[in-house]
């Protein structure tokens, strides 16, 4: 019987908590992940830009969707990764979970920003305005604020362990609040303007449009995971450099 099988689930979780083991494993995973995500994105972009028909109502502008919709999905996915990692960090004190949450935040914020910008670019030809105070737009904007606040808290507290705990608390409170904010914004908008500006039930999506969308969604998701691993590796190296600097300073102080 190998030692791995006799371990309980939480012990197996702990086995992956070893940063050295994580560095070795992620180093082997990175190259295939880059290949897969760039492959999906390349094929997806070809289908999205050339090999799919223009929409009969929206014309060529529908191609913005293939970037916009996956970005919006990843914006929410990023926050859930952050919140789950924060919960794991607070409950199990898993040392990599803090790094995972910290690394997920800028990536999620970037996708949120991309969703907002592509949405504005799409909104101008479709609705005639760069920005509409629509429920969906407003809640994504608030999600962006939550990301920015989370990252600001990380930079504001100098000591990493303190910053990690505080940021994890913030991420979890945010996770409870996201549905409340989402619901309240929906309710606010439907009270004041009935759904005339923005209808998601436009053309039901055709199969030849679904293929590039699915390819792009897979590509974005793999890109997210790849970037997350790159950032986590960078965080571990940053931590090691910090430790070396502290040790160096301590050695110099003794001289």
């Amino acid at each position: 019987m190998s030692p791995m099988t006799s371990l309980s689930a939480s012990q197996r979780l702990q086995a992956f908590a070893n940063p050295a083991r994580f560095m070795a494993l992620s180093a082997r995973l990175l190259a295939p992940l880059w290949v897969v995500s760039l492959g999906f994105l390349g094929v997806g972009l070809y289908y999205a830009l050339f090999a799919s028909p223009p929409d009969y109502q929206q014309g060529e502008t529908v191609r913005i969707m293939y970037v916009h919709v996956p970005s919006a999905w990843l914006a929410m996915f990023g926050y859930s990764v952050m919140a789950m990692a924060s919960a794991v960090a607070l409950i199990f004190r898993h040392p990599l979970a803090d790094l995972c949450a910290k690394s997920a935040a800028p990536i999620g914020a970037a996708f949120t920003f991309l969703a907002l910008v592509t949405g504005a670019l799409w909104g101008k030809p479709m609705w005639g305005a760069w920005w509409v105070w629509d429920a969906r737009l407003t809640s994504v904007l608030i999600l962006f604020f939550l990301y920015l606040g989370y990252m600001a808290l990380w930079t504001a507290i100098e000591e990493p362990t303190r910053a990690a705990r505080a940021a994890a608390v913030l991420a979890l409170v945010g996770a409870i609040n996201v549905p409340i904010i989402r619901y309240s914004v929906d309710w606010w908008n439907t009270l004041h303007q009935p759904a005339s500006v923005f209808r998601m039930d436009g053309p039901t999506i055709a199969p030849e449009m679904l293929l590039p969308l699915a390819l792009m969604a897979f590509g974005f998701t793999f890109l997210f995971v790849t970037l997350l691993l790159v950032r986590m590796r960078a965080e571990i190296l940053r931590h090691r450099v910090r430790m070396l600097r502290l040790a160096q300073a301590a050695a110099r102080a003794e001289d």
Binding site: I142, L148, A152, L170, I181, S184, V185
Partner: peptide, 10 residues
């Protein structure tokens, strides 16, 4: 203020 304001919106 930055952290709390989004929570105030509802």
């Amino acid at each position: 203020s930055l952290l709390v304001l989004p929570f105030y919106l509802p």
